[in-house]
């Protein structure tokens, strides 16, 4: 029931891991605007060597309609989210670079 309060619960977001998501190729976040009146929307990320090739890659995937494509290096995106996996504050990769979860062979 509406009690007339104007207060809303504040979202609690934590920073999502910032490990480099590129492997052989850098990762690029892709944003599209369908036409001039539309809002820019995030539509995922592509692997590509450069911003230009990332744009070409995105054009092949979405090229049928978008009037604007923005490309941003995934490593430059700092993500803060109310959603999280695992205990808060735990780094996915220890600072010393060891991967204790994997075996030596």
């Amino acid at each position: 029931m509406d009690d007339g309060s104007t207060q809303v619960e504040k979202a609690s977001r934590t920073r999502v891991g910032d490990e480099d998501r590129g492997d052989d190729l850098p990762e690029w976040e892709v944003f599209l605007r369908g036409d001039e009146d539309a809002k820019m929307s995030h539509v995922g990320s592509v692997s590509a060597a450069t911003a230009e090739t990332a744009h070409e890659h995105a054009s092949r995937l979405f090229g049928w309609f978008a009037s604007d494509v923005w490309i941003c290096p995934a490593g430059e995106m700092h993500r803060f989210s109310t959603h999280s996996l695992g205990p808060e504050g735990e780094d996915a990769t220890p600072e010393d670079g060891t991967e204790s979860r994997t075996m030596e062979f």
Binding site: S84, G86, A92, G97
Partner: peptide
Amino acid sequence: PGELTTEEGKD
């Protein structure tokens, strides 16, 4: 780098 941890995997 950045593999999902055990706890992240369970989540």
